[in-house]
Design a protein around this nucleic acid. Structure first.
Ligand code: MN
Ligand code: MN
Ligand code: ZN
Ligand code: ZN
Lengths: 143, 143
DNA sequence: AAGATAATGATAACCGTTATCATATGGCGA
DNA sequence: TCGCCATATGATAACGGTTATCATTATCTT
């Protein structure tokens, strides 16, 4: 007889309970191309649970970031953006100053040199943020 | 007979007039160690011109950033910070996650590899932002 | 099922920054 | 030097993304 799958909680945080809304928020982020603002996540989540409130979206995003399912990054305009962090590992962003698109990229050498730079200044490295601004291939062509 | 020095305007923007307050704002930023918030700049500027308002500080900072005398950078907490940009050239920041201090650093190799990374993705590079997070030497010792 | 506690939605509060507007000031031509 | 007009200024309201509050609901444990 088929037995119910063990309930997996979308949040691994201590004391966290399972919640349909948090699942919806994670699904909204995970099934998109990423780089959504909280408001955009809300719009997507409402397609799954029409009544979900914006406060819950913020709370869920914070929780999901805390347990590593989602990662946040804050562009210069100060509006946080979210993307699924499960399988996709760390990456940096090339940000187009014309159309605002994001291109993801990693350069292992840059990553390594950052460690060296931190060490050189006695820093115990915990993380970093690298954003490269410019015109994406598409926008550069139009100019 | 000593004649007055030609008035130099602290702002090179088109149509800008000389203003004592903008001078005071520039002086406040230039004579500090940098990385001041707008509110901190206001506090310093008031030592020079007690009546100066916060709106004027914001306006002056924007103007001074526009003509390259001051540079702005926005840490993850979203509160803009300012530093003199005249002689000091580009640099990146090592940010201590414990005490919040900033250490300035440049790695020419990282700078060069960023150009390569941009080119590799067809980006016409305009600028970048690199922040490295971790414990500064001082804070790492205390842990 | 009942009790304990986490989750939720509506909305007020927060806070750095920007916009507004009446007034003051700087710089130019006469 | 004087007058004109665009720019600069200060007080303060408005803005917008995010967080806090609180009464209610959902989930988990026993
Ligand atoms: Mn990304
Ligand atoms: Mn600096
Ligand atoms: Zn583009
Ligand atoms: Zn430190």
């Amino acid at each position: 007889m088929a037995r119910k799958k063990p309930e997996v909680n979308s949040c691994d945080c201590q004391g966290a309970r399972k919640s349909r809304r948090r699942d919806a928020v994670l699904d909204a982020v995970a099934s998109s191309d990423g780089h959504l603002s909280a408001e955009e996540v809300h719009r997507e989540a409402k397609k799954r649970l029409p009544g979900i409130g914006i406060a819950t979206v913020y709370r869920s995003l914070k929780c999901l970031c805390g347990c590593g399912k989602v990662s946040e990054f804050i562009p210069p305009d100060g509006v946080a953006r979210y993307e699924a962090a499960g399988s996709r590992g760390h990456h940096d962003h090339l940000v187009c100053t014309a159309c605002g698109c994001f291109v993801e990229a990693v350069d292992p050498e840059i990553e390594r040199l950052q460690e060296r730079l931190a060490a050189r200044h006695g820093f115990r490295l915990e993380g970093h943020r690298l954003e490269i601004y410019g015109l994406c291939a598409c926008c550069a062509r139009k100019k």
